[in-house]
Design a protein around this nucleic acid. Sequence first.
DNA 1: CGGCATCCTTATGGATACTG
DNA 2: CAGTATCCATAAGGATGCCG
Lengths: 129, 129
Amino acid sequence: MRELGGADVYLRNCASRNVLSLLSNKWLCLVVGVLSSGPVRFGALRRRLDGITQKMLTQTLREMERAGLVDRRVYPTTPPRVEYSLTPLGAELEALTGAIRVWSEEHMEQIAAARADYDERAAQPVEPL
Amino acid sequence: MRELGGADVYLRNCASRNVLSLLSNKWLCLVVGVLSSGPVRFGALRRRLDGITQKMLTQTLREMERAGLVDRRVYPTTPPRVEYSLTPLGAELEALTGAIRVWSEEHMEQIAAARADYDERAAQPVEPL
DNA sequence: CGGCATCCTTATGGATACTG
DNA sequence: CAGTATCCATAAGGATGCCG
């Protein structure tokens, strides 16, 4: 943050922006949700995240692993078995992302209604007599 | 959510996913942060979000307005004056997004260290003797 | 099974110019 | 001042095929 005429400014290129963009990943919130109940294999994780592609799941997990949020454990069996779990740091996130998931579910109808209302008023901008 | 072998599945195309993708907007978290202290004009908002372009700020604010998170108030003066503020619904978000901003700032160093460590180990995958 | 590499399409976002 | 409109570069993401 920087000061600008007495007001705080959210600076670009600061490290917290970096973390913020990590957390605003489309899938991260859901991945944390699935992993919060314990280690999960890649395939199971994928099946529980409806619509995610293999590419995106791999990519998201790598990013999270790299940031120290997720632990990747490989069992050298045939066929290979790979389990993902939250690190202590990643587990901290569940308090935040869980709250977001809950809020999303609780307010989805209200938001859908607001959007419908907005669109209706946008389509009929002239004042009716 | 759907059941799949006793495990919850995060379904695609469900309304909460919609809200989730709204919240994972790159800028929303910061916009909520600025607006949480009261109504702010477009220009001031822009100056306090370092690096945001006019296009992205407009786009983000429209999306938030449409979802009922933000109130847009136009004062028909010359030059025009437009003030944005959080609706009660949007104000609820500050509890969530504020926690995320705080967490990001608190853990940015730890995450940067984890990434550096990961990258170093990735560059030197052979076991040293 | 759990990936990676490639190709290709679409979405995102920056820069610029113009307007009420 | 607070936008809208347009163009353009890049990034995100899906589909497919191959591999240890």
